[in-house]
Amino acid sequence: MARNEQLIRQHKLLQLLEYSHFGRTLDELRGDLVLDLGLTNLHERTVRRDVEALQAAGFDIQNETVERGKVYKLGQNNKGVHEVGLSASEMIALSIGRELLYPLVGTQYWRGIETFWNKVQEAVPDGVFDHYSRYRKTLHVFGGPSKSYENHEGMLKTINRAIVEHRVVEVEYESVGKPASTRRIEPYGLAVYQSSIYVVAAAPEVTEPSERLRNWKLDRFRHATALDEYFKPDPSIELSKHLGKSIGIFSGEDPTMVQIRLGQRAAAYVREDPWHPEQKLESHEDGSTMMTIPASHPREVLPKVLSLGADAEVISPPIFREAVAEAVQKMAASYAASSV
């Protein structure tokens, strides 16, 4: 564990030195490391040893004495190591990806995206950038999120560190309509779904293996503390498989196969914009289409079915059909109650 922590610190040190044009003192570097990595304490001697280890590994880290003390910075031998050669089409692809990641604005991820994007712009020849600028105006990305996770930056750093080090995290979590409660979670990773960030973590108090792993919405975290307590990750857990089992963020080991009857227009929409890679569409002689799709909770199906109006009907299982029917009945009652 200590070796892993040292590598993380040294990698972050290189980033801090790279971003600083005027150098950083050991105390400044120590403060930045504590803040960025969510550490509870860090001694200046440890930072000095990390700097010396990087110098021994061949990194050109120089020091000089200025008014505020001895500062460290990267020397000329490390300049230009990030230069890249890109085509205009590759720059367009990168810029589109950057815009799609706007929910990360204000987080350490976004700073990484921005610094890389700035390096790309500085590294490519003027002709390539001019060509990119002309063609980028022909493609527009819109309909994206209107929120960011800037206010959650500290918690994200804490959770990231806990994921890497397999540490238990104590969180204050406030579900919609419920009072905040203190929970302990074992974080495995992060997921971005429909502009929201989720922490994929196990609940230690849950003993049923198929129910332990859950997705916790970061918006509902009020506080997060990495404890000096470690957990042993389950080697059988594959996050990509876990997250891909359902059409939404409610994932489980055994998703339910839901059948939905679609009219011709609804079927055309679903073919254009599939709900899930494993969806199956079966055309019937009366012009309707039966769609079979995996889902872990009725709340995943509800908004999608309602968006298609009367052109979509949940057939089975009963719990999913009843959830949609109840929502439709309540909506009908609201509209029938009064007209303004």
Rank of each mutant, 00 (worst) to 15 (best):
residue 3 R to I: 10
residue 9 R to I: 04
residue 13 L to V: 08
residue 17 L to P: 09
residue 20 S to I: 01
residue 26 L to R: 15
residue 28 E to C: 00
residue 28 E to S: 07
residue 31 G to L: 11
residue 32 D to Q: 12
residue 33 L to A: 00
residue 34 V to I: 13
residue 37 L to R: 05
residue 38 G to C: 09
residue 43 H to K: 09
residue 45 R to H: 00
residue 47 V to H: 07
residue 49 R to D: 01
residue 49 R to F: 00
residue 49 R to S: 01
residue 50 D to Y: 06
residue 50 D to A: 06
residue 54 L to H: 05
residue 56 A to Y: 05
residue 59 F to G: 03
residue 64 E to V: 01
residue 66 V to R: 10
residue 66 V to E: 09
residue 72 Y to F: 11
residue 72 Y to A: 00
residue 75 G to I: 06
residue 81 V to G: 04
residue 84 V to I: 11
residue 85 G to K: 10
residue 89 S to F: 01
residue 90 E to K: 07
residue 92 I to L: 14
residue 95 S to D: 14
residue 97 G to I: 02
residue 106 G to A: 03
residue 106 G to Q: 02
residue 106 G to E: 05
residue 112 G to C: 03
residue 115 T to C: 01
residue 118 N to R: 14
residue 122 E to C: 02
residue 122 E to R: 14
residue 126 D to M: 05
residue 128 V to H: 06
residue 129 F to H: 09
residue 130 D to H: 08
residue 130 D to G: 01
residue 132 Y to Q: 08
residue 141 V to P: 10
residue 143 G to R: 10
residue 149 Y to L: 09
residue 150 E to W: 07
residue 154 G to F: 09
residue 155 M to C: 02
residue 158 T to V: 14
residue 160 N to R: 15
residue 160 N to I: 00
residue 162 A to T: 09
residue 168 V to P: 03
residue 169 V to S: 03
residue 169 V to Q: 02
residue 170 E to A: 07
residue 172 E to A: 13
residue 172 E to K: 15
residue 173 Y to T: 13
residue 174 E to R: 15
residue 175 S to R: 15
residue 176 V to T: 14
residue 189 G to Q: 12
residue 191 A to H: 14
residue 206 V to L: 10
residue 209 P to T: 12
residue 212 R to H: 03
residue 221 F to R: 10
residue 222 R to E: 05
residue 225 T to K: 15
residue 228 D to N: 13
residue 229 E to S: 11
residue 236 S to N: 07
residue 241 K to R: 13
residue 244 G to H: 04
residue 245 K to S: 09
residue 247 I to G: 06
residue 249 I to E: 04
residue 249 I to G: 04
residue 251 S to R: 08
residue 251 S to N: 13
residue 254 D to S: 10
residue 255 P to N: 00
residue 261 R to D: 08
residue 267 A to Q: 02
residue 268 A to P: 02
residue 274 P to C: 08
residue 274 P to K: 11
residue 275 W to P: 03
residue 278 E to N: 10
residue 286 D to P: 04
residue 287 G to M: 06
residue 289 T to V: 12
residue 290 M to L: 13
residue 293 I to W: 00
residue 298 P to D: 06
residue 298 P to C: 06
residue 300 E to M: 13
residue 304 K to F: 02
residue 306 L to G: 10
residue 310 A to K: 15
residue 310 A to R: 14
residue 314 V to E: 03
residue 314 V to H: 01
residue 315 I to V: 14
residue 318 P to Y: 03
residue 318 P to D: 14
residue 319 I to T: 14
residue 320 F to P: 10
residue 321 R to T: 14
residue 322 E to L: 09
residue 328 V to H: 01
residue 329 Q to E: 14
residue 334 S to W: 01
residue 335 Y to Q: 10
residue 339 S to D: 09
